[in-house]
């Protein structure tokens, strides 16, 4: 263990921090100097040995689905038979007066490194579903390196055009602002600006708040579409799954995140069809 981390850990313990356990198995070389500036000097010279695996055992199961279309960027595409809505959708349920063409819908959902918000949270997966004729096309972008993020953002921007109507579940508050931050950090124009956006969470809440136990997507898809997920990786575990892979671990859970994300997109499309077929009871 190097003196700098030890020294800091010691100081933090003295300052009252309660959780100061070191992450296991970091290969720091022991160094004897007691004063801080000396530590820094020594550390600077001994920097190259870091592996950053943080105790993650290296895995041979590194298979991420889809095609690696750019270094660290994986693309999957799937076509699904799924009951399509009418070619022209009455969107008054989402308080949009004009009818929306089915062909313009782009359902999207991101998987992120966490819920903390701010500039430190990123999307490592962007999934999008649209209707090609009457089949649902599900496309997913997954990054396996940080550097691939910019390419992923460019790619997703290419899927959008001025006519696109976004469909999401809580995307107005979560996914869209998060992507806006990522585009800004990547110094790219934000392609979501100015697009119409049907956030299905709000109409679902207007109809079923107080009727159902909650209005989460899992509840809505179960109640409205009869979807029962098997072996679903809970959304909250997605960040860990990706991080595990990033640090050299197995891709097994990351593949489950892809499945989870694809099901979210299918459910979005199904719930939209369902809502569009209803009278707008809540006005």
């Amino acid at each position: 263990m190097s003196p700098l981390p030890n020294h800091l850990r010691e100081l933090r313990r003295e300052a009252g921090a309660r959780h100061t356990t070191a992450p296991a198995s970091i290969p720091w070389a022991p160094m004897p100097s007691p004063s801080l500036p000396a530590h820094l000097q020594r550390l600077l010279q001994l920097r190259t040995h870091r592996s950053g695996t943080l105790g993650t055992p290296p895995s041979t199961d590194r298979e991420v689905p889809g095609e690696e279309i750019a270094p660290g960027l994986h693309y999957t595409e799937a076509w699904m038979d799924w009951p399509p809505p009418a070619a022209s959708i009455d969107a008054r349920f989402a308080r949009v007066g004009e009818p929306v063409a089915r062909a313009h819908l782009l359902h999207f959902d991101t998987e992120t490194t966490g819920l903390a918000g701010g500039t430190g949270t990123r999307a490592f997966m962007i999934g999008a579903a649209d209707w090609i004729d009457s089949r649902l096309r599900v496309r997913q972008l997954t990054i396996t390196s940080m550097a691939a993020e910019t390419t992923m953002l460019r790619m997703f921007a290419g899927w959008l055009h001025t006519q696109s109507v976004l469909v999401s579940y809580n995307g107005k508050s979560y996914d869209a602002p998060l992507l806006a931050t990522r585009y800004r950090l990547a110094r790219l124009p934000n392609p979501l600006i100015g697009l119409r956006h049907l956030d299905l969470l709000h109409p679902v809440r207007r109809h079923w708040k107080g009727v159902w136990a909650n209005c989460r997507l899992a509840t809505a898809e179960h109640r409205l579409l009869g979807v029962v997920r098997e072996d679903d990786l809970p959304g909250a575990q997605a960040p860990a799954a990706w991080l595990h892979y990033l640090r050299g671990g197995s891709a097994a859970n990351l593949r489950r995140v892809l499945q989870h994300n694809a099901q979210d997109l299918k459910s979005l499309a199904g719930i939209l069809a369902c809502l569009a077929g209803m009278d707008d009871r809540a006005g």
Partner: peptide, 28 residues
């Protein structure tokens, strides 16, 4: 850099190439 290494050791940063990226689900 030495401080970033400490943070990487804590698992909040991930080093990739020449960059140190925030990776934790927290709001420091």
């Amino acid at each position: 850099v030495p401080w970033l290494e400490v943070l990487a050791g804590e698992g909040v940063l991930h080093r990739e190439g020449e960059r140190w990226e925030w990776i934790a689900d927290s709001y420091p």
